[in-house]
């Protein structure tokens, strides 16, 4: 009981950091705007600088919200996969779900790009097509993984199948790249670098509602996830309907990863590393605490990465996937080196 009270302290602390980082993301950017002006703009006061107002409200605000939700989603789907596959190195990118989304996007950007321009006077322009393609790609891979998950009882084998499918998808993408024109490849590569600014203010409600549903569903999974710490047979003996729980977990992961990847590109390391950061912070793998803490930590880390993308004093923005490994990779290496002392997967 003591431990639970101690763990409850994490919520206000994490929420405080989240608030700081959120405000920080609005204040700090490639264009320098004085903090008091940002606050004024946020409070709805009149400003004489319309450009600043546009930057804060049309660009930085949706970007911060996107980062917050995308980080939470990737982190939670990483946690779900690590628990389901009982593997500390499982994550949305490893199971090929990100690659599936990637493949869908590649097909649209590299080959259907031309035809999409002709449709530009219809409400469907390039972006929804990319989102749809990512969704279809992720769900296709998810379907394949689900199919194999009913055939292969062993989760490690299933993980390997996921990795193989990911390789297959990447290989198809390379072949597509080889045949596509240079400018399309460039656009695709830019998307592949990852970005939190891909969600416009108009798209934000759709983005928020999809991810909120996914996150809400994953909170409902806390009880079976804890039982799954003991393995599937123990969980079954405790009354968990294993097939159903597996499907549910994979479905949640699919929604969270597909939507995030479609809007923000394939983001590495957040899904893999944040659950470990949360476990190290919390010192527990009890999902009652771990899942909410992972969610909040994911938001914080993504906002931090979002701020790190802006190189101080220069007018350039680093690609997101150049920044996430800076935080993610050391964490994974730390966990692997100290795996004897860190007990969560023993």
């Amino acid at each position: 009981m003591n431990m639970n009270r101690q763990a409850l302290l994490f919520y206000p602390i994490l929420l405080f950091f989240l608030f700081l980082l959120f405000i920080g993301s609005l204040i700090y950017g490639a264009v320098s705007i004085p903090p008091e002006c940002v606050i004024d703009i946020l409070l709805g006061k009149e400003t004489d600088r319309i450009a600043w107002q546009n930057i804060v409200l049309q660009s930085r605000l949706p970007q911060a919200v996107t980062a917050m939700l995308a980080g939470a989603s990737l982190a939670v789907s990483g946690l779900l996969l690590q628990t389901l596959f009982r593997n500390p190195l499982a994550g949305p990118s490893i199971l090929g779900i990100s690659d599936g989304a990637n493949l869908g996007v590649a097909v649209v950007m590299l080959y259907l790009g031309g035809s999409l321009r002709q449709l530009s006077d219809l409400p469907i322009n390039g972006y929804p097509a990319i989102i749809l393609a990512a969704f279809i790609g992720a769900c296709a891979i998810l379907g394949i993984i689900l199919y194999f998950s009913s055939k292969i009882r062993n989760n490690v084998m299933l993980l390997i199948v996921g990795i193989m499918i990911g390789y297959l998808a990447s290989s198809i993408i390379s072949i597509l790249n080889f045949h596509a024109s240079t400018d399309k490849v460039h656009a695709y590569v830019m998307w592949g670098l990852g970005n939190f600014s891909g969600v416009s203010l108009a798209q934000l409600p759709f983005f928020i509602s999809c991810l909120s549903i996914g996150l809400f569903l994953s909170v409902l999974l806390i009880k079976p996830l804890n039982a799954l710490l003991l393995g599937e047979m123990y969980a079954a003996n405790l009354g968990v309907r294993i097939k159903q729980a597996r499907m549910f977990i994979l479905l949640c992961t699919g929604i969270l990863t597909a939507v995030t990847t479609a809007f923000c590109g394939p983001i590495s390391f957040i899904g893999l590393a944040v659950p470990h950061i949360a476990r190290l912070l919390l010192g527990s793998s009890n999902h009652k605490m771990l899942l909410p803490v992972t969610l909040l930590t994911g938001s914080c880390v993504a906002l931090l990465c979002n701020m790190m993308m802006v190189v101080p004093g220069m007018n350039t923005i680093l690609p997101l996937n150049a920044v996430t490994p800076l935080i993610g990779a050391p964490v994974i290496i730390y966990v692997i080196i100290n795996r004897k002392n860190i007990q969560y997967f023993n």
Partner: peptide, 24 residues
């Protein structure tokens, strides 16, 4: 049941593990 299956329960306490028995 008590099985030979490998568990991943290293990161929860003895109390929490026993409390999983209350799941049903």
């Amino acid at each position: 049941v008590v099985l030979t299956e490998k568990t991943n329960a290293g990161g929860i306490t003895v109390y929490e593990l026993a409390s999983l028995g209350r799941h049903p």
